[in-house]
Structure formats: C-alpha cells, structure tokens
Computed example of a mutant assay.
Amino acid sequence: MKVDLFDFDLPPERIALRPARPRDAARMLVVQGQDAPFEDRGVRDLPQLLEAGDVLVFNDTRVIPAQLEGRRAGGEAKVGATLHKRIDLRRWQAFLKNAKRVKLGDQLIFGGGVTAIAEDRHDDGSLTLMFEGDEPVEVLLHRAGTMPLPPYIASKRGVDRQDLEDYQTMFAAEEGAVAAPTASLHFTQELVDALDDAGIGRATLTLHVGAGTFLPVKADDTDDHRMHAEFGRISPATAAQLNAAREAGGRVIAVGTTSLRLLESAADADGIIHPFEGDTAIFITPGVRLRAVDGLMTNFHLPKSTLMMLVSALMGRERMMAAYAHAIASNYRFYSYGDSSLLLP
C-alpha cells in the first residue's frame, strides 16, 4: 500500500505546543462506524460515551529524560543522543545527531560528568552506547538528560521544566519510555473517579515507547517499512481481566496506540489475550484484522505515519481521512499535546 495514501496537509498552527489545562479539558472527536456523523465532544464526556462493563486499557510506562547533549572526547564535535531501547543494565541503543563524526570506541561526554562509549552501529543508523561508571543509567539520565519531547514541539519552543510534569501521564510507574503514551495525558483523578462511578473498568499494561515512534516512514510502500522493536509486558491478571470483560459483553478500549499494539501482539487468532513479556515490532496497516480491541482513544497523528496507518486499519482509510479533514476544519489541536479522538468501529 502506497504511503502517500495517508498524507494530508496540516496547518502549522494546528500543532499544540502545550497541553490543555486542566488535562481533561481537551476536545474529543467521536468517530463511530462508517455512516454516523462525527461528534464534537470533550474528554470529560468519556463516562457518558462508554458503557458499564467496558474496560479502558492504559500504558503505565514512565518517560525517562532520554535526551542527552554533549561532545566527542578529544574534539569539539557536538553530539546529541536520544536513547531508544535498553539493551542491558549499562547499554542503550540510541539515535545520534552528528553520528558521522562518531567512530566506534569513541568516548562521548555529556553533562553532569556522564560518559558513554560508542560500541556498535546498527543497520538503522543507531548506535549502542555503553554508559561508564557504577551508577544506574536511570540515575545518570536524571542528572544529565532532558525530556525527549517530539521534534515538532522541541524545535518550535525548546524544552522546559514544565514538560517534566506535562509529558508524564498520571499512570506512569514503570521507567523506560522515551516518548509518552500521549492519549493518557488527558486523564485526571476527577475523570478517573467519574469513570469508576459509571462502572467502566481500568487495566494497565507496559510498553516502553521508543524513539522510533518519531521517525518518518521513508519507504514509498508500507511493505518496505520496518518497525523498531519495543519492550512490552501484560501480566496474567490483566490478560484474565480483559478476557473476562469481553466474555461478559464488555468492550476493550485501548487508550493510545501503544496499548493497542501490545494487546494485538498478545492476542491469538480468536482474540484471546495472553500474558506477554518481550519485544514487539508489530506493524498494523489497513487489511490487518484487529482481534483484541473494540475501540481506541487516541490523539491526532502525523501524516504518512505508522500511527495514521494503524487508525486507518481500525476504522478504514477513507473514514479516517474524512475525520481528519473534519478535525482540521474544526480547529482541533494535533499531536502529542493536542486533542483526542474516540474511535468505535
């Protein structure tokens, strides 16, 4: 399938540079089936839009300050690193700015006395960095790193201390992501309480979102694109909860594409969700039958992105292109800090 089929024009002013305040004040476009009119609602309407017995599935990953700035030892060449995926206790796979100036074996010096050795180069252009010393890498990152905001935000206004709070969900518990599961950024305790009162269940899983989520699809055809692997975990208790909910007639609603991708990675041909622990590089495009989810709450995605392809697999490409045209015409705010949508096929 041609990647250009998922392209659209987005006015730059539609890109949100800060989240709505309070978080649950964001707008939400409701897209149901193929023929129902689009509904302009708000995130606070979610308890009325779902039904008792439905279960929302949140990603409880926690974003680490994975953006590092420094230089190559013995020279003045500046180097920027965005950690992508943990390899082991001291090694991370990372994308580097100015990577051509770095040779294997070079020492990279970042702020706060943090240093790393470039150990290996991967086919996708990323490098393995081995962090020196005895302190846990997470400690080093909190000392030297900054929040890895998406380029479409960071390039326009930079990163500040407010992002330490804004770019973290209320469910964040398991450190390891280098991008936030942004659909969950809309939730507040007040909204969660309202969902509980409405009989709508909650479940959590963990998918450590990698920096590959920001990379454009460079291939002309979806068949030629390869996803980056990310680590995920679904506990036996969560799998049992979700299977029981569907068995009782409830719907499983993924909050965010990260939750959806992991659920689909763990589901068998009959839609039964199994416990899962390991890497997934699942790529969901139109034509792929979704088995584990009955709906998706998600923000608005980039043109020609793998996430635009995913929502098109759920709702149909023409339906999603029409929904995005409506969102742009109706002044919805796009991307990580933007508004939300509720997709119910």
Rank of each mutant, 00 (worst) to 15 (best):
G33Y: 02
Q168L: 12
M130N: 14
A269E: 15
R86F: 11
I117C: 12
L307R: 00
D88R: 08
D88Y: 10
Q48E: 13
T258G: 03
R62I: 09
G74L: 02
P22N: 01
T213N: 07
A52W: 12
G158R: 02
G256A: 00
L262E: 06
D197Q: 15
Q189F: 07
A94R: 00
D4W: 14
A327F: 08
G250A: 07
A254P: 05
L344Q: 03
D45C: 03
L83R: 10
Q168K: 02
T258A: 08
L215C: 07
L56D: 09
L10S: 09
R23F: 13
A244S: 11
G105S: 09
R90A: 11
L127E: 04
L310D: 02
V114F: 14
D124A: 02
F8L: 00
I200L: 08
L207S: 02
H301G: 03
G53S: 06
F6D: 09
T146Q: 15
I328V: 14
H225Y: 15
E51N: 10
M227R: 10
R251S: 02
E318M: 00
T285H: 14
F171D: 01
V311L: 03
L104H: 10
E135D: 14
F58L: 12
P181A: 05
R121T: 08
P286L: 06
L242S: 01
D163R: 08
G125F: 08
F8C: 04
P37E: 08
H208N: 08
I272W: 09
R23I: 13
R44W: 15
D163G: 04
E174D: 14
F6Q: 06
L149R: 05
Y167M: 09
N243E: 11
R18Y: 15
R72Q: 06
L302S: 08
E76N: 12
G53K: 09
S312R: 00
G295H: 06
V252N: 01
E132S: 15
P216L: 05
A36I: 03
R90T: 15
G338H: 01
E264R: 03
V178I: 03
Y152A: 04
A36S: 11
G112H: 12
M170W: 11
E51A: 13
L140V: 01
V55Y: 08
S265N: 08
Y335H: 13
L149A: 06
D134A: 14
H208Q: 05
L104Y: 00
R91L: 07
I253S: 00
D268F: 05
A219E: 14
S330L: 10
R202W: 05
L108V: 06
G278A: 12
L83P: 01
A325K: 12
V159F: 05
F231N: 12
L191E: 05
G111P: 13
R18V: 15
G256E: 02
T82C: 14
E51S: 13
T298G: 09
G125R: 01
T115Y: 10
M297D: 06
F8G: 00
D220G: 14
V31W: 01
V55R: 03
H208R: 04
H228D: 09
P181L: 03
L17A: 08
F6I: 00
R44Q: 15
E175L: 13
H274S: 14
L46E: 07
I117F: 13
Q93D: 12
E247Q: 13
L10H: 04
A26T: 03
S184C: 06
R202E: 07
